[in-house]
């Protein structure tokens, strides 16, 4: 289960990219992704330019390319859909390597693949240079609804606890000679999932009790740490989306 390893995305470092405040980076990546999506798919060169741009940021961040590329594998399941497009889409057919493909489907597939990959690359780069708790802080600073922030914070905190609990339950099952071999055993797994839910729910109640005991009244106190970002930090973060804006505009006009 990957939930407990979410923090494995982060690559500790002291580069200028690591040093930027999380909310600046979040805003920059968000704008970058919007601009990439807004670029016309026919401007093939623009996607090359975006790739170079991200590569430049990655170089500055000194995150090893291998670290980034392996983590981009998360995209693979989503690519399956893009690969199907040329076969199933309507429109003019062309022949490539003996296969009859739809031309608009090919463009569609390229569109999904290029934009998706750039989006994933930018997100992986963000996650590799920003700690999870900083990301949550950043989201809060960007005025994400507090309730969503709280839910995300608790998810991050308790993912490990719950996956550890799940692992213990699995060990307990195995120790008593149980191994799920087929549909006949699904009932046991379902019951385990159910009791894991109940345990988590009860833990939730205990956590709520502990929060009340420490003065929780429904809103989280504002976060610790450095205050709002300075102009220089915003300017540095803006380098990525501004360059992307130029590329996007050129993509529309050229």
């Amino acid at each position: 289960m990957g939930a407990g390893h979410a923090h494995k995305l982060y690559k500790h470092g002291h580069s200028p990219v690591h040093a930027l405040p999380a909310h600046c980076k979040l805003a920059a990546v968000f704008c970058f992704v919007l601009l990439v999506v807004a670029t016309p798919r026919e401007a093939v060169w623009a996607f090359g330019a975006y790739t170079l741009l991200l590569a430049a940021v990655a170089a500055v961040s000194r995150v090893p390319p291998r670290h980034l590329l392996t983590r981009m594998a998360i995209e693979v399941p989503f690519v399956a859909f893009a690969v199907l497009l040329p076969f199933v889409a309507e429109g003019e057919r062309i022949t490539v390597w003996g296969l009859t493909l739809s031309e608009s489907g090919l463009w569609g597939a390229f569109n999904v693949l290029a934009k998706g990959t750039l989006g994933v690359a930018a997100s992986v780069l963000l996650a590799s240079t920003t700690r999870l708790d900083e990301l949550l802080l950043g989201l809060a600073r960007l005025r994400m609804p507090p309730l969503l922030c709280q839910i995300a914070t608790f998810m991050v905190r308790y993912a490990d606890v719950i996956s550890e609990e799940m692992r213990r339950m699995r060990t307990a099952r195995l120790s008593r000679g149980f191994e799920a071999r087929g549909p006949r055993h699904w009932g046991v797994l379902a019951k385990s999932a159910g009791s894991l839910f109940i345990r988590s729910y009860e833990r939730g109640e205990r956590v709520h009790l502990a929060m009340l005991s420490r003065g929780y009244t429904g809103t989280m106190p504002p976060a610790l740490g450095d205050g709002p970002a300075g102009r220089a930090e915003w300017a540095r973060s803006a380098a990525l989306p501004l360059t992307a804006l130029a590329i996007c505009l050129l993509g529309w006009t050229l």
Partner: peptide, 9 residues
Amino acid sequence: DPDDQLFMP
């Protein structure tokens, strides 16, 4: 259970 008490990141 400290896991109940410590709920922040």
